[in-house]
Design a protein around this nucleic acid. Structure first.
Length: 263
DNA sequence: GCGACAG
DNA sequence: ATCTTGTCGC
């Protein structure tokens, strides 16, 4: 049985090497297998129940937008979290915090993790599952933002990225049929034995006939969710649009909240 | 040195 | 991520 690890939260004054060491530690305690009590096939079912509360499980989508300074510099991150239960939005909150470091591939959680944890603190409902815009195990040190946040809070989490950070698809991922998945395995850029299954390319939506293609999503385990289950959950939650509904709506809310503060 | 690089 | 209206195609 695992436990929250606030001691592994992204710090601000860390050197690059210290951040990478922390990621290796996070990966070592992360659980890349199913370890949760709800029914993954009924996340949008109003009648589903969770072992703990008796209500449908709470799925939370997380996304960020950025606020610019009077000089034109991005100086603050706005993290929006949106909670759904039984297919309905039950709560949405956001937090704004100063940006500490620039965007560096592989170190995303040290830029956006602080504001995300702050926003999650504002939530009154208890999340059963966290969905992130970004990678989980598909990461150089197997500790993308979904893994980092999932481990710190000890909540099951999934990474949903729109492009591939590292790893190699086991087959062509062009023009996949809707509902299909292609395994992503580790390559030399991933700190894992070559060929390790780290995630799936997931085609949630696709056009029927024309010469127009939709790219797949790259789904990976964050914490306490296995790769196959993660792919299944994303397919189930993305019945109307490419992105799973909690993430799509959090994305929308992050922009909406930004306008309120800007205009 | 060269290439790769979530948001 | 972000700057952003109209517009091509089903």
């Amino acid at each position: 049985m695992s436990t929250p690890r606030p001691d592994l939260a992204p710090g601000s004054g860390l050197s690059r090497e210290e951040m990478e060491d922390l990621q290796r530690e996070i990966a070592s305690v992360a659980v890349f297998d199913d370890e949760f009590a709800f029914d993954p096939d009924a996340l949008s079912n109003p009648l589903a129940t969770t072992a703990s509360t008796g209500d449908p499980p709470v799925v939370v989508g997380v996304d960020q937008s950025f606020l610019t300074n009077e000089d034109g510099d991005q100086d603050r991150a706005l993290s929006a979290v949106l909670a759904m239960r039984g297919g309905e939005v039950v709560e949405r909150v956001y937090a704004v915090t100063p940006l500490e470091i620039p965007y560096i591939p592989g170190l995303l959680s040290f830029r956006e993790g602080g504001p995300i944890l702050a926003a999650l603190e504002e939530l009154s409902v208890d999340p059963d599952l966290l969905l992130f815009d970004g990678s989980g195990r598909i990461h150089f040190r197997q500790a993308g933002i979904a893994t980092h946040m999932g481990v710190v809070r000890d909540v099951p989490s999934i990474g949903v990225a729109k492009s591939l950070l590292c790893g190699t698809p086991r087959a062509d991922t062009d023009d996949l049929p809707e509902g299909s998945t292609i395994a992503i395995e580790s390559n030399s850029r991933v700190d894992a034995p070559d060929g390790t299954l780290v995630g799936y390319a997931v085609q949630t939506r696709q056009y029927d006939s024309p010469n127009q293609y939709i790219n797949p999503l790259y789904v990976s385990s964050g914490h306490r969710v296995g790769p196959e289950t993660a792919a299944e959950i994303v397919l189930e939650l993305a019945s109307s649009y490419k992105l799973p509904e909690p993430v799509r709506l959090a994305d929308q809310y992050a922009d909406e909240a930004k306008r309120e503060l800007t205009e």
